[in-house]
Amino acid sequence: MKARITVTLKSGVLDPQGKAIEGALSGLGFSGAHNVRQGKVIEMKLDETDEAAARAKLEDMCKKLLANPVMENYSIELTA
């Protein structure tokens, strides 16, 4: 299975990089773009074939390494 994990800063956590991107977009003339937030995407292939088991494993990976629960949220997408 293929997995895509998206890690984003929790709402309320200041994202200075997002702010800088927002400023740059505005400088390029893209008006009306607000609340720009920067995150990261982690992709991987898993040997696991059972979706529930794969999801449980990915949850564990996110909690132990891929995301920092103090400041980040994560979401998991799985495809065959």
């Binding site: 956590v13 200041l14 200075p16 990089q17 800088a20 920092n68 103090v70 400041m71």
Partner: peptide, 17 residues
């Protein structure tokens, strides 16, 4: 230490970048 859970909180990108 924060990443290891020995201290609370996290160290983020400097506010001024």
């Amino acid at each position: 230490l924060t990443e290891a859970g020995l201290l609370p909180g996290a160290l983020m990108r400097n506010a001024g970048l």
